[in-house]
Design a protein around this nucleic acid. Structure first.
Length: 191
DNA sequence: AGTTGGATGGTCT
DNA sequence: GACCATCCAACTG
């Protein structure tokens, strides 16, 4: 269980940073579907990124989950990351024990501080793309925060890793993060 | 503290 | 066959 502390918005066909910029394909089809579903894709050949589809069907939009603060099951998250990393580096033998030792030194609140780390730590795989995150029967679910919790202060910043899109898309403040939360991926840039 | 390069594979031209 | 909504180790200063 974890709390989402950082996201990025990708909105519409016109957004030159969005996977929907070239229209609907087999991969991005969930983005064109109903909100509340998952869109999972592979980046850089190794990391799986989790997105939450937003906007009504027909409007391709999704929110990339960039960072999660684990709340329960810290060791389960660590083990999921060990599995992900060990399974990846089969060519260069980076012993599983060494990976586990390194992750043991990662603070609990930084176990999923990045989109690729969320994918690894929460065992997100491509087969989950299209899953209904609002269905209580789903293995991966989205739930509302406890009503008695104070609303966090949210900060806006530029999206990361999409400079190729060019302005105004590369400049849009569509990265939203909880101010001062240690679980966010990297601090917002200061102008 | 900041920069660089390697790992790695699905997707779209 | 090029392009990535990334991460980490190994470097430089």
């Amino acid at each position: 269980v974890g709390r989402i502390v950082e996201v990025e918005a990708y909105l519409g066909r016109d957004d030159r940073a969005s996977h929907a910029r070239f229209g609907q394909t087999a991969r991005n089809a969930p983005m064109f579907g109903p909100p509340g579903h998952a869109y999972v894709y592979l980046v850089y050949g190794m990391h799986r990124c989790l997105n939450i589809v937003v906007e009504p069907s027909g409007v391709p939009a999704a929110v990339l989950v960039r960072a999660v603060r684990p709340i329960e099951g810290f060791e389960a998250v660590r083990e999921a990351r060990v599995r992900a990393e060990a399974g990846r580096s089969r060519g260069t033998a980076t012993g599983e024990a060494a990976i586990r030792e390194r992750l043991a030194r990662v603070p609990d609140d930084r176990l999923a501080s990045g989109p690729g780390l969320v994918g690894a730590g929460f065992d997100i795989h491509l087969a989950l793309s299209g899953l209904d995150l609002l269905d209580p029967a789903s293995p991966l679910r989205l739930e509302a925060a406890p009503a008695d919790e104070p609303a966090p202060s949210v900060q806006a910043a530029r999206r990361i890793g999409i400079d190729y899109a060019g302005p105004p898309w590369s400049q849009a403040p569509w990265r939203l993060l909880i101010e001062g939360d240690r679980a966010v991926s990297v601090g917002p840039e200061r102008d």
